[in-house]
Amino acid sequence: MQRLTAAIKHLIIINVIMYFVPQLMGMDLTNIFALHFPKNEHFGIWQYVTHMFMHGGPYHLLFNMYALWAFGTPLEQMWGRNKFIFFYFSAGIGAGLIYTLVNYYQFNSALNILLESGITKNEVFELLDPTKVYKDVNLQTVNALYNTPAVGASGAVYGVLVAFGMAFPNAKLALIFFPVPVAAKYFIPLIIFGDLFFGVTKYSIGNIAHFAHIGGALIGFIIAWYWKKNQFRIN
Rank of each mutant, 00 (worst) to 15 (best):
I234Y: 06
H210W: 02
K39H: 04
I223R: 03
F43M: 00
I93A: 01
P179S: 14
L101S: 05
H36F: 13
F71T: 00
G194Q: 05
P58L: 04
V133T: 15
I113R: 15
Q77A: 14
N31L: 08
A171L: 04
Y48I: 01
W69L: 07
V182G: 06
F197K: 06
W225V: 05
H55E: 06
Y203V: 08
F33V: 01
L127Y: 08
F20A: 06
I176R: 07
I205E: 05
L62H: 03
F177S: 14
I191Y: 06
A167K: 02
G94A: 05
H51C: 12
A217E: 02
N143D: 13
I223Y: 01
G159S: 11
Y146M: 03
D195S: 15
F86T: 12
V137Y: 13
I188Q: 07
Q2L: 11
M1N: 08
N31Y: 03
S117C: 12
G44T: 01
P149T: 11
I222N: 00
G199A: 06
K172H: 13
T131I: 00
F168Q: 15
P169M: 09
I223V: 11
Q23E: 14
V182L: 14
F43V: 01
L97R: 04
K39N: 02
A212Q: 11
T30R: 11
T141L: 07
G194L: 14
K132I: 12
N40K: 00
A156Y: 04
T148C: 04
E123L: 09
H213V: 02
D136G: 03
D129T: 11
A95H: 04
G56R: 00
I113P: 00
A150I: 12
T141R: 12
I223T: 01
V142G: 01
N122S: 14
T5H: 12
A209P: 09
K39S: 03
N112L: 08
E76F: 06
F164I: 05
T100W: 04
V151T: 12
V124K: 10
K132D: 03
L4F: 11
H60N: 11
L114V: 14
A70I: 10
M18A: 13
Y104A: 10
T148D: 06
L97S: 02
E76P: 08
I13R: 13
Q47D: 03
N40I: 10
F197C: 08
F53W: 13
